[in-house]
Design a protein around this nucleic acid. Structure first.
Length: 205
DNA sequence: AACCATTACAACCGCACAACT
DNA sequence: GAGTTGTGCGGTTGTAATGGT
C-alpha cells in the first residue's frame, strides 16, 4: 500500500537531461508518462514535461529579462492578470514558469505589489486573488492596477476559445479596480492570434 | 573564512479540462 | 455516459547562488 514513490525528485542532472533530450529527439514531445518506462529515467512524466518545456526546449531563452521584456510583461499582466501562460505566449522565448518567477521575484517588488499575507492559507481555491480590496494603494498601483479576478471565469473558460473573456480594468484614463468591464480577449488578438502590441504598449498609457 | 540572510530560479503539487477508451 | 489518461495551468516550495556582516 504505502508504496514509496519510484520517482526521483529535485534538481535534474546533466545525465537525466541527456536521456530526456534523446527521448524527445527520437519520439517527439508528448506521451510523457511513457518516458520512465521507455528510458528507465526515474522521473515521472509530469516532471519530464516540465523539464522539457521550461529548460530543455530549444526555443527557451535563458538569461536576464531585458527592459523591453519587463515592460511588456508588466503591461500584459495588467491586461491579463496572472494568466502566465498567456503572457508567456506573447513574450518570445520565455516560458510561463520563467515569467511567473520573474514577476514574483522582480517585477512585483519593483511595482510595490505585495502579496496579501493572509492569503497564504486560503489562496489555493482562489487563484489570482492577488489584490486587496481595501484602499491602501501604492503609487505603483495607481500606475499599474492589477486586475481583480474574483469575478473572473476560469482561465480555461477562455482558454478553449469558446468563451474568451477577461476583464478590462480601466475606466476612462485610469484603471478602475472595482468596476471591471468584461472584454472578449479575441477582440484584442490580431489575425495571427497575437495580442495587438499597439494595444498592449499604448492601450493603458 | 565562516556564518547567516536574501535573492533568483528550478521544480513540485493539486486541480481542471480535453481526448480517448 | 463513465472512467481513465494525458496535458496544461497557477500557486507554492525547495535549493543553489550571492551578498552582507
Amino acid at each position: 500500500m504505502e508504496e514509496k514513490s519510484e520517482y526521483k525528485k529535485g534538481l535534474w542532472s546533466a545525465e537525466e537531461d541527456g536521456i530526456l533530450m534523446e527521448y524527445v529527439r527520437k519520439h517527439g514531445k508528448g506521451k510523457w508518462n511513457r518516458i520512465p518506462k521507455v528510458t528507465g529515467l526515474k522521473r515521472c512524466g509530469k516532471s519530464c514535461r516540465l523539464r522539457w518545456i521550461n529548460y530543455l526546449s530549444p526555443g527557451v531563452k535563458r538569461g536576464r529579462f531585458s527592459d523591453q521584456e519587463n515592460d511588456l510583461i508588466i503591461r500584459l499582466h495588467n491586461l491579463l492578470g496572472n494568466r502566465w501562460s498567456l503572457i508567456a505566449g506573447r513574450v518570445p522565448g520565455r516560458t510561463d514558469n520563467q515569467v511567473k518567477n520573474h514577476w514574483n521575484t522582480h517585477l512585483s517588488k519593483k511595482l510595490g505589489i505585495i502579496k496579501n499575507p493572509t492569503a497564504h492559507s486560503s489562496q489555493s481555491q482562489t487563484p489570482s486573488k492577488s489584490r486587496d480590496d481595501d484602499n491602501s494603494h501604492s503609487q505603483a498601483q495607481d500606475q499599474v492596477m492589477m486586475t481583480t479576478t474574483d469575478a473572473l471565469p476560469s482561465p480555461r473558460d477562455y482558454g478553449n476559445g469558446s468563451s474568451s473573456w477577461f476583464w478590462q480594468c480601466h475606466n476612462n484614463d485610469h484603471f478602475n479596480l472595482h468596476t471591471p468591464t468584461p472584454v472578449n480577449v479575441l477582440d484584442l488578438l490580431d489575425h495571427d492570434d497575437h495580442v495587438s502590441l499597439d494595444f498592449v504598449w499604448h492601450g493603458f498609457a
